[in-house]
Design a protein around this nucleic acid. Structure first.
Lengths: 210, 210
DNA sequence: GGTGATCGCTACGCTCCCGTAGCGTTATGA
DNA sequence: TCATAACGCTACGGGAGCGTAGCGATCACC
């Protein structure tokens, strides 16, 4: 996906080529941060990066391809621990995700793709793929908890993913409300507590796990 | 909010003015649907609506203001019933919201504002305000259920709002997964069942759902 | 050290869109 | 009826950005 226009797939790549692409992508991400999709123009990237416009066109066919590459260049990895304590692992995971949504390049650049994804299949897939690693990690952890008997059997892992991660994205991009570690902690507790086997079923409320 | 450039607030408005604005806004929404924010230009709106470019400038200072007005013009109302059965009321409400997110102008136009909201305070407020009625209706219904004893006491209504509505937005705009009435029903059940008092029915964690 | 790939630079034509001005025409409301 | 407010139309200067072409200089690799 997002292949450069002319690239030797496995073979050795000319370091000059790699460097100019890297500089262009960095500038593109900065521009997206500061001015949004509107500010992402080939000309602006050229000026900021110091890479000649012609050189940029040698690696990216047009602005859309550069945009795509910029988004995929900031895809982030959120680590998922498996300590045996599901709720604390997932809480940590969600706190990490929330932090990346609100501080890193990832969260800043992602919304530049939402509108385009409505009409571009490629961009839609890119926006979607952005969450694949995260979703896979979460699902795997949930299933492992199910196997270990920490969770009740028959959980709907995909539904749980939406329940855990959806509110974070929602508050960050749509309702634009604050979140923060304590809030995320409450969210995870509310979602998972009713599903864990051992603990008595005390739902949500002022619980203070960990 | 989003006041027209030159408008007599309460006084009678010239019907010619109202009509040209309405036609312009309709065209703007269509363009946003079909081509996204990129396609929203004063010239394109003029051509499509049949309203002269100069006339559009007489009512909207620039593209951003027109964009803002277009978004606020599609703000939708989701009705909330109070039948005494909380889960069925909320389920219906969420199904209605999901439907509007995926079919109406509202869901099509909203993402055109996500990127800009990162940098424009006005647009951010607009995107946020888009959910005010919905949030208020949901919160009110939750509190009424709490008063009636249908819900346990001490619920965090704002958290619940994010839990119920967040996943819908998330799947619509970010993960781009399908939803549908059955899925929404499962979501609402998962979120609310652990909190309803008379939980003789369908405990999510009960014996052995399988 | 030689060869080919890559770069930076300048320049260009082109398109789109901006926002304004001027003017005659038409509909509104007093 | 009549003043005026709003309209549509045309025209314009200007800026931004696109994408390409041609060139000499430089760097990587054999």
């Amino acid at each position: 996906m997002v292949a450069s226009t002319v690239l030797p797939p496995t073979e050795h790549e000319d370091p000059r080529r790699a460097k100019s692409r890297s500089r262009a992508l960095t500038a593109a991400v900065e521009l997206l941060r500061e001015e949004g999709l509107q500010g992402l123009t080939i000309e602006a990237v050229a000026v900021r990066s110091g890479v000649a416009k012609t050189t940029i066109y040698r690696q990216f066919e047009n602005r859309d391809e550069l945009h795509l590459a910029a988004i995929s260049s900031v895809a982030c990895h959120v680590p998922m621990a498996d300590s045996g304590d599901l709720i604390s692992d997932v809480t940590e995971f969600c706190i990490g995700l929330d932090h990346k949504l609100r501080n890193g390049d990832f969260g800043a650049v992602l919304p530049t793709g939402f509108d385009g994804a409505e009409r571009s299949e490629t961009l839609a897939r890119m926006v979607h793929d952005t969450g694949l690693q995260r979703r896979a990690a979460l699902l795997e952890r949930l299933r492992s908890a199910e196997r270990d008997g920490e969770l009740i059997a028959g959980i709907d892992a995909d539904l749980l993913n939406s329940q855990l991660v959806g509110p974070l994205f929602y508050r960050r991009f749509i309702s634009r409300q604050p979140a923060g570690p304590e809030w995320v902690e409450r969210l995870v507790a509310a979602v998972l507590t009713p599903l864990v086997r051992s603990s008595s079923a005390v739902p949500v409320r002022g619980g203070r796990p960990r």
